[in-house]
């Protein structure tokens, strides 16, 4: 055994240790796709809210005495449907690009490390999901956007031990945006678009730049 072989074995050890604990196929393009879905969803939500506010203001102008409290339950349902569509689209694009990257690397997309990422992300996400359902149930719909951001950020921090470390910083930023949004409830949609749209696109592009970009030939 010469020195080169020893260096090779150290390299092997490092690579295998990393591959057996961290899921490295996470795709930056998937992040960009998820961010774009979120921005499109936020645009439709903004349009709905704007129309509702406009309709409400017209109603107040006529000061109709027969319907004093505008009914927001339809709007809440529509917003919930948009949120669900965004979730499906974001997960779909994220998964598709990650699957493609794993294929290109010749790795399995569903190995032990991938299961750890999903499991550790799922714990805060499920807690957050039920928390938000509780908020809606009790009529605190305005708190939903900040809660989404905070729980999602915590999920990312929790899962980052098992994937690329950049995810940890994305998690910190999501938590921070969520907390700021909590004290700016009237701009909830803006912060939601910032956290889920802009930050995903930014971090997705950053990860693509760092790990996936074809080196200039």
């Amino acid at each position: 055994m010469n020195e080169q072989q020893h260096l090779d074995s150290l390299h092997d050890i490092k690579r295998i240790m990393e591959r057996s604990t961290r899921f490295m196929s996470l795709s930056g393009l998937g992040g960009v796709g998820a961010g774009v879905s979120a921005l499109i969803g936020a645009f439709f939500a903004w349009k709905l809210i704007f129309q509702q506010n406009f309709a409400n203001s017209m109603r107040w102008d006529r000061s109709a005495p027969y319907d004093p409290a505008p009914d927001d339950s339809l709007l809440t349902l529509q917003l919930l449907l948009i949120a669900l569509a965004v979730l499906v689209a974001a997960l779909g694009t994220g998964f598709y690009f990650t699957w493609r990257k794993a294929q290109a690397q010749g790795l399995s997309v569903w190995d032990a490390s991938a299961r750890k990422v999903i499991f550790n992300l799922a714990i805060p996400l499920f807690a957050g999901g039920f928390f938000i359902l509780g908020l809606l149930y009790n009529g605190y719909a305005g708190l939903a956007a900040p809660a989404c951001l905070v729980f999602y950020g915590l999920g990312l921090v929790n899962a980052s031990k098992y994937t690329v470390t950049d995810i940890r910083y994305l998690g910190y930023i999501e938590v921070l945006i969520g907390v700021i949004a909590l004290f700016n409830l009237y701009n909830g949609l803006f912060f939601w678009a910032l956290g889920f749209g802009v930050m995903h696109i930014f971090y997705g592009a950053l990860m693509w730049w760092k790990y996936e970009r074809k080196p200039a030939a």
Binding site: S9, D12, I13, I16, M17, S20, T21, A112
Partner: peptide
């Protein structure tokens, strides 16, 4: 540990202590 496969097995088990692989 001169065999790359045995070295690989040990590397995997080493970072997954307390876990069954």
């Amino acid at each position: 540990f001169e065999s790359r496969i045995r070295l690989g097995v040990m590397s995997v088990l080493m970072v997954n202590v307390n876990e069954e692989v």
